[in-house]
Design a protein around this nucleic acid. Structure first.
Lengths: 230, 230
DNA sequence: CTCCTAATCCATACGTTGTACGATTATGTA
DNA sequence: TACATAATCGTACAACGTATGGATTAGGAG
């Protein structure tokens, strides 16, 4: 079969249409714009105006594309470090807020990023440096720093997972969850029902920002207690 | 085409080969044994000795199967409630441990369970009752109880996600992560490098149980501080 | 008992997906 | 110039989810 419209074969120097980065960038745009299910190798190749099989010379398979996207998101993270200008707990919170915000940049990718452990490379660990700095200033020992950082990171991951899931769904069930709780038989969850009763009307819409800050305060308070105990 | 081997048509009462539960049970076994990717409608039908299309009379599509699995796992959760026999923080920890263990029962399903918000139904909220009971005993106000419970749950989710991901992967990168950190240039992450230096050799293998307990202690300490502040 | 309806299951088929294989063409090195 | 290598393309295949429609038969209505 003769090639009529497009050129085939190896392109001239400087005319390569593809590269790992170009592919990943295009993939990220597709995922951000249309969701993770819209990302197929064919669709990706089409937006790059390239034959689907050409992608496989730069990435071994689709899993590698997804892993590369997770890596890309992590690489884009930059946690600020206000340093000694603020108390250690504020330093810690500021880095945590930035981490959460970074994960929120690409909600359609959250699940992939949070579950892809191959993305847990040197890059990621190094990114967390501000966490270790702040915890060091708090007066923790090495092992305590390590564990406290992991606890904080786990909280952020769990929080981000919930946040991303709610945004991804049709947002139908969540809003009226509390009203349905009110309708539960009293013997099933008495404490829960009492709590909901004491929440007031404004409690019906969950406040993600407030929830996150509350978690941060609880964690820093707990870490402070550990530091005080030596 | 005449049906020779198998029976066809509507089965006699009580002789139905399929049901929502039977399908989900078989699906759960496949996922547990061979991973989430092994679950296809054809494979599922084969293990039930049934035509693939028969499944669609009990579940509308594959997404419903996955959602049903998440629901199944949640329904199987039972958080113990030692009640007033122990201090509130131990009561809280005990429920948290049970929650984590419940999620660990089906590691191949963790991602699905943790990200499927449609599973966040009445059942789930009611399951969390021991959390609310313990936090109530701690002396928190309704809104604080709500927020503290969410923080704890988010931590458990994040922790479980990491735990499941590591188990699911080939377990190649994680073990030598710390050794690679040691090899990093000193100016990239000085605090991290110092912490790792102070961890000792046994720190190279991450201790999930220890990490979880550490997180629980940090959280309960933080909650106690909130309770003390009124 | 007879007819109708609805439940259950099956056979076939379609469009889409990831990607294996081989051919084609340019580059860089010997 | 000769040749290994790299980048792209064309074709093809197996597996997937599931739409459609038909076959069989249990159970309810008359």
């Amino acid at each position: 079969m003769v090639n009529v419209g497009k050129r085939s074969g190896r392109p001239r120097a400087g005319e390569e249409r593809l590269s790992r980065e170009a592919i990943l960038t295009a993939a990220l745009r597709i995922v951000d714009d249309e969701g993770i299910d819209a990302l197929t190798m064919r669709r990706l190749a089409a937006t790059l105006q390239v034959n689907p099989m050409s992608l496989y010379h730069h990435l071994p398979n689709k899993a590698a594309v997804l892993a590369g996207l997770a890596e890309l998101v992590f690489a884009g993270l930059e946690l600020p470090d206000p340093g000694d200008a603020v108390p250690w707990d504020e330093q810690l919170k500021e880095a945590a807020r930035a981490y959460r915000n970074g994960l929120r940049q690409h909600p359609n990718l959250a699940l992939q990023v949070l579950s892809d452990t191959s993305a847990v490379s040197d890059v990621v660990v190094v990114t967390m440096e501000p966490f270790y700095r702040a915890l060091d200033r708090a007066g923790l020992e090495p092992r305590q720093i390590f564990e406290a950082a992991n606890t904080l990171i786990d909280f952020i991951h769990g929080f981000s997972l919930g946040e991303a899931s709610v945004r991804a769904e049709t947002f139908e069930l969540a809003p009226d969850l509390l009203t349905r709780v009110r309708a539960l038989p009293a013997d099933k969850a008495p404490t829960l029902k009492r709590i909901v009763g004491g929440l007031g009307v404004e409690g019906l819409a969950y406040d993600f920002d407030g929830g996150f800050e509350s978690g941060l305060s609880t964690l820093t308070a707990g870490i402070a207690a550990t530091a005080r105990r030596r």
